[in-house]
Amino acid sequence: MSISTRSERLVSIMAAAPAGGRVARRIGPRTVPLWLRHVLFIAALIGAWELAASQDLLDPAFFGRPSGIAAYLWKGFVTGGTLWRELGYTLAGAVIAFIGGSVCAVATGLLFMVFPGFHRASEPYLTLLNAMPRIALAPLFLLWFGLGIGSKIAVGFSLTFFIVLSATVAGIRSVNSDHLVLSKALGATPQQVFTKVTLPSAVPVIFSGFRLGLIFALLGVVGAELIAAEHGLGQTLAYLQSTFSMDGVMGLLFLLAFLGLGVTSLMNRLERTLLDWQ
């Protein structure tokens, strides 16, 4: 084959490749954005649910129906506005429990680092307390703190504290010992070792505890509201269950699920922002 013939074939292949690539990109699944695929999937799922409920394939008395759920949420947030107050009580309890539990847990973890003997002495008792199911202790918290928001904060606090404490201790223990030895060999003071080596290395693990602790603070508050409360989404959910209002029950369950998704996304974004230096 001559050089001119081979050159002509190479030119023809290069000319055909972009056109083929454009066709592949035009008809391939990557042309549909990810968010649009999620929207289409959810829309298809809701449509199938509504159709099954209208054809009595799914009993609305047990599963509800999307149109009824939308009507309940519209009435609760737009027309009547009663759900805003209940949502505010639940979020306030979860945020206070999360902040209080996280601050106390991080402070305790740092105290354990300064006094290792105190950590070894208190570890069996902390393990015993952590093994207690806090939801089962909710009636005791209700007796101590009443039906108001205080008992809900206590349940959320107890869940958040042990989760963040475990993450703090694990983060401190995960610091590379070679870095500590090198820092001390270079003449770093204990304060410099803590601020420049120990704390930066432990922060990612601690943030993982924060993310999980916020979710459990919300779960603890809602769980305590389900048992007994004056206000909150959990109290509203318990009332709807007792009256067999399945549209309202499913609506609040979806609302709580999106709340969990929202706080997780918020903590992930905050973690990426604060740890951008890594």
Score class of each variant (00 low, 15 high):
E225V: 01
G146K: 04
L45I: 09
Y72A: 04
G148P: 00
A16C: 04
P29R: 15
L34G: 03
L256F: 00
A61F: 11
G262A: 14
T189P: 02
G76T: 04
T82P: 03
F161I: 02
G150Q: 12
M113I: 04
P29K: 12
I135L: 15
P60E: 12
L261A: 13
S201T: 08
S2T: 10
Q192R: 15
T189W: 03
V114R: 14
H179M: 12
A61N: 14
E271A: 07
E123W: 01
Q191R: 15
R30G: 02
L73H: 07
L126M: 11
S208L: 09
R134A: 10
E86N: 15
A61T: 11
A229W: 03
G150F: 00
Y89F: 15
S54Q: 15
T273N: 13
F216H: 06
M250R: 03
L218W: 06
S201F: 07
K75S: 15
F118W: 09
A71T: 09
D247N: 15
Y89L: 13
G21A: 12
L111W: 03
G20D: 03
Q192I: 06
L180S: 10
R9T: 09
R9L: 12
L87Q: 07
A154C: 03
R65G: 07
S2M: 02
F216Q: 04
R269V: 08
T160Q: 06
I99W: 01
A229N: 06
N268A: 06
W84Y: 12
K184Y: 13
A24C: 09
E123F: 05
G232W: 04
S265K: 02
F118E: 06
L36M: 13
L212N: 09
A71D: 13
P204Q: 14
Q235S: 13
P29D: 10
V222L: 12
L165G: 04
F62R: 10
Q278N: 05
V23H: 11
S158C: 14
V106L: 13
V249Q: 09
L111R: 01
K152H: 05
F112L: 14
G260P: 00
S122Y: 01
M246G: 01
I13C: 06
V164L: 10
R22E: 05
R6L: 13
S7P: 00
G101I: 00
V175P: 00
L10G: 05
G232F: 02
L186Q: 11
A121N: 08
P200D: 13
S54R: 15
A257H: 00
L199Y: 03
G100Q: 10
H119I: 00
S54L: 14
R25H: 09
A185N: 11
S54M: 13
L165W: 02
G81Q: 11
V197I: 07
F244M: 12
R30A: 14
I153Y: 05
A185P: 05
E271P: 03
D56E: 15
F161G: 00
G20Q: 05
V39C: 12
A136M: 07
T195Y: 13
L274Y: 12
M14V: 02
L36E: 13
T108L: 15
I206R: 00
S4E: 15
R272C: 02
S174T: 00
W84G: 07
W84Q: 14
A238F: 03
T168I: 00
A185W: 03
P66K: 10
V203G: 06
A15G: 08
V181S: 14
Q235P: 00
L212Q: 11
G223Y: 01
P33I: 08
P200K: 11
I135C: 07
L252I: 15
